[in-house]
Design a protein around this nucleic acid. Sequence first.
DNA 1: GTCAATAGTTTATATTATGAACTATGTTGA
DNA 2: TCAACATAGTTCATAATATAAACTATTGAC
Lengths: 377, 377
Amino acid sequence: MFSTGHYLILSSLSRNGPESRSELALRLGMSKAAVSSLVRDLLKQEILCEQTPVHGSGRPSVPLAVRAEAAWFIGISLQDDPAIVVLTDLHGTVHDRMELPRHADLETCVSSLCDAITHLRKGLRSAKVSGVGMALPGFVANDRQTCLACAALGWRDVDIGGVLSKRTGLPTWIENDANALILGEQLFGALRSSPDFSVIFISNGIGCANIVNGRLLRGYAGGAGEMSHAPIVTDMAHALPCRCGNRGCLETVASLLAIGNAARRAGLPGEIAELARLAAGAHPEALSILHHAGASMGLATAHLIQLIDPSHVVVMLDPNLRDGIYGHALQRETESHILRRPVSRGMIQFRDFEPDSFACGAASLAARYFIFGPDGV
Amino acid sequence: MFSTGHYLILSSLSRNGPESRSELALRLGMSKAAVSSLVRDLLKQEILCEQTPVHGSGRPSVPLAVRAEAAWFIGISLQDDPAIVVLTDLHGTVHDRMELPRHADLETCVSSLCDAITHLRKGLRSAKVSGVGMALPGFVANDRQTCLACAALGWRDVDIGGVLSKRTGLPTWIENDANALILGEQLFGALRSSPDFSVIFISNGIGCANIVNGRLLRGYAGGAGEMSHAPIVTDMAHALPCRCGNRGCLETVASLLAIGNAARRAGLPGEIAELARLAAGAHPEALSILHHAGASMGLATAHLIQLIDPSHVVVMLDPNLRDGIYGHALQRETESHILRRPVSRGMIQFRDFEPDSFACGAASLAARYFIFGPDGV
DNA sequence: GTCAATAGTTTATATTATGAACTATGTTGA
DNA sequence: TCAACATAGTTCATAATATAAACTATTGAC
C-alpha cells in the first residue's frame, strides 16, 4: 500500500509537527519532487491535510499536518482493576472510554473486552478502527502478542494478543505497562521530538522505561529499565526483604505499597493522602518515611541519569507525593548525585499519575504501526 | 562509489562472518539477484573474496569473506603516556605499532603523531591507509573531530581531528576512550554479533560504554555510561570526596588510584601487584580494601545490568585484580543484586587490560566508515 | 508593474531491487 | 554409470522509487 517514503513523511510530520513540502525535503534529505509525489498520495488518502499557508518572501509555504481523524485506535490497560478501554484518534486524543472489571480468566477477560470494543466502534459510525493495543503489568514476548508472565493476573504464556486479534479482526499489540507508557509519550507526548528520555511511574509498584537513540531500550532479555529492584538500601541492617528474593530493593522503600507498609508499622495511616497531610503538618515520623522514600527514589534516578543520560525524566506520581517532601527529596537527591550538565534545569518533569495514561500508551502501539509502517521502529 | 546495498553486504559479512550469497539474501531480505550483483562489484574491488565451497546436497555454496588486506587503518591512543599508534587491517589485526611520548602541546603532539603515521604507512608499500581514528580520555564533540575537554592533556575545544586530517590527508575520527573501546569490540571483537552489551574498564579511572539496539549509547549530552561517578557509597560517614564535587562516587573507592590511596593511608604499598600479593597472603587490611573496592564495583555493575540489560558485560582490568578478591567480590556482588535471568552464566567476561586495546578501538572508528559507509551507524 | 524569492510540479532519467526463467554444480541412488 | 534431484548462483526484462533540472505558481518589495 504505502512505501517507506510515505511512512517517512508521516512519521516526520507526526514527530516534528506540521511542515511544508520543502521543509520535509530538507529534513529528510529527499528531493522536492519525491516529497511532492509522496505527499500527493497521502493527501488523496486524506491522511494528511494542508493548513493555511505561511507567508514569507516568495511563494507561501503550505504546512502539512497529520489528520487526527485519519485513523482510530483502541487502547486497553489492564494495569489496574477496573480495566480501561479508550478510543483515540491519530493524535492520541481520547474520544471515548469505558471502564470494566478486570477478569483474570482469559475467556471472560477477552469477552468483556470485545464487548467494550464493539461498543466503542459503534460510536464511530462509518470510520474504521485500525488496531488495538494493550498494556499490562508483566513480561511480554518479542512477538508483542503473548504475555509471558503477569503476576497481577496470574498469567503465564497467555496469547492474549492472538485471541483478541482473532475475535476483533483487528491487528493487536501487547506491551509491558512502562513500555506502553513511554511509547505513547514518544508518539503523542510533549517529548516526542526527543530521541533520549525516560519515564518513571510510581504507584503500588515502580515502573521505568527509556527511549534511547530514538528507540525503546528493551535490553537483551527485555528487562531493561528494571529500576524497581535496584539495590538502593545497602545498609543491610535496614534493608527490607523484597519479593524478588533480594533485600533493599528500591521498591521496598519508595513505592506506594512500601510507604503504606512503613506507615502502618509506625502506627500511622497507610493511606497516602492521609500520610501526606500528616507530613505537611510536620509530623516527624510521616516526614521521615516520605523523605526516605523520596530520597531513595532520587538515588535510583541519579543512577539512571548517570548511566543513560536522558534529556528529560518524566516522573508520574500521585500529586500528594509530588507536592510534598517526597517530591522534594526525590528532586534534591537526584540533582545532588548527578554531574552538572549545561542543561539540567527542568530535567525532571513531574506529572500527575492518570489512569488513562496506560490505555493511551496502549493505543499508541497500534498508532505506531499506522505511522511508522511495518518496518518502523 | 558504493551504494547502501554494498554496505549492507559488507557489514553483514563483517558482523556475522562468512556467508554465501544465498544466506546473505535470506538474512538481508533481499533477492538473490541483488546480492549477486552487489557481491560481484565487491569481488571486483577485491574487498571480498570467495572461500572454498561448502558441499551439501545441490550446488555447493561459496562463502564470501571480507578480505583483511582490503583496507588499512591507523589507530591512536592518547589514553596513557606513551601514546600508542597502531596499524590494523580490516579485521582489526595489528600489523605494526609504535609508542611515542604523549605531548600536551597540540603542535608537538600532531607533529610526532604524523611522523609515526608516515613511518607506519611506509611499511605498507603500495597499499593505502583509509583513515585514522583516535581515542582519548575526555569529551568529544558530536562531529567526532573536536575534543571538547580532556583533563589529562589540559585540552579544551581542541580540533585535534581537523588538524590531523589536514596534515595526513586522511579522514579522521576522534572518540572518547570508553566509546572507542566498545566500538572496537563491536566491530572486531567476539561480541560483534550482539546488539546489547557493555564494556567497563578499570584503570586509574573507570570507564564504561554500552551498545544498545546495536548502536552506541551516547545519551542526550554524550554523557551516557558515566558510572565512574555513580553514587555508590551512601553512608556519608565513609564517603570520600571526589574530584567531581560530590562524595562517595564509585571512582573514590574502586579505581586503581583509589585503591592505591586507600592502601597508602593504611600504611600499605600503593602498587596494585604488591597489594594483591598481600591480599593473597590473607593480609586483613589488604583484603578489606580490595574487597570493598570490588564489591563497590559490583554494586555499580548491578545497577548497570538492571537498567540496561546487556547480554554481556566485558570487564577489562589488571590481572592482579581479576584473579584475587577484587574480581571475586565484583562478580559476587553483581550477581547477588540482579534479578535472575534465564542466561546469566558468563554474563560477566573478565579480560586483561591491554594497552593496545584503545588504539585498536580507535582504528575501528575509521574501519566502521569503510564497512558501514557514510550513513552507517 | 517588474523583479527577486521561495514553493511546489512536471518530466525525462538514473538507480536499485525484483521475479522468473535460466545455468551451474554438486549429491543420491537405482 | 547416469538420470533425477537439490541447491547455488546468474541473466534479463521490468517495476519501483528517487533524482535533476527545467518549469509553473504565488507572493513581497521596490
